[in-house]
């Protein structure tokens, strides 16, 4: 199942690159770099999510960042809905 997902991701990446790359003109160096980097990040993240679906996400990051306030809000919500 995992490997089917990997194949799917590879297919999506290939289609994306085959579609977009020829439209980029040779002098557009910055755009090419940006495109390559973003696609690589996307591919890497997709693979990570396939193999480690429980990987902590950005929401957990925000939770950690606002921990005291979130605790206070949770307490508050419980009090009001209880």
């Amino acid at each position: 199942m995992d490997w089917a997902a990997v194949l799917g991701i590879a297919a999506v990446l290939v289609i994306m690159v085959r579609y977009e790359w020829p439209q980029l003109k040779p002098q557009m160096k910055r755009e090419k770099t940006a495109y390559a980097v973003l696609t690589a990040v996307g591919g890497a993240l997709a693979l990570l999510l396939v193999f480690y679906p429980e990987m902590p996400g950005p929401t957990q990051g925000l939770d950690a960042l606002y921990k005291p306030l979130v605790k206070w809000m949770d307490h508050f919500i419980e009090k009001r809905s209880g």
């Binding site: 999506v12 755009e31 940006a34 696609t39 990040v41």
Partner: peptide
């Protein structure tokens, strides 16, 4: 960038 169109699909994937 000089144009935003090239990065639309990679960002869509993200």
């Amino acid at each position: 960038l000089s144009d935003y169109r090239p990065i639309v699909f990679p960002l869509g994937l993200l």
